[in-house]
Computed example of a mutant assay.
Amino acid sequence: MAKPHDLLAVLVDADNVSPAKIGAVLTEIARFGTASVKRVYGDWTRPELSSWKHAASEHVIQPMQQFANTTGKNATDSALIIDAMDLLYTRRFQGFCIVSSDSDFTRLASRIREEGITVYGFGERKTPEAFRNACDQFTYLEVLDAPAAESAATAPVPTRTPTPKLRADTKLVSGLRAAVDAASGEDGWADLGAVGQFMRKQHPDFDSRNWGYAKLSDLVRATELFLVGPRPQGGLQMRKRGNGS
Rank of each mutant, 00 (worst) to 15 (best):
K201G: 11
A9E: 04
Q65Y: 11
D205F: 03
T163I: 01
L144S: 03
G95E: 01
S18A: 12
A194R: 10
A148K: 08
F32N: 01
T71V: 15
G72P: 05
K165G: 09
K240V: 15
L227Y: 08
V220E: 00
A155K: 14
M1R: 04
V119L: 02
S208C: 05
A75I: 14
L108F: 09
A109F: 11
V228A: 07
F122P: 04
D136L: 01
A152W: 00
P162E: 03
L236E: 08
R231M: 06
D136W: 02
T76G: 13
V17S: 02
A222G: 13
A190T: 12
I98Q: 05
Y41L: 07
P204K: 04
D181Y: 02
T90G: 08
A30H: 05
S174C: 11
P232W: 05
G242Q: 10
F198K: 10
A109K: 10
Q233C: 09
T127G: 02
D13P: 15
T34N: 08
G188R: 09
V25A: 10
A153T: 13
G95P: 13
V143Y: 04
R167K: 06
L144F: 06
P158V: 13
K73D: 03
N210P: 15
F198A: 08
T27M: 10
A222S: 12
D145Q: 13
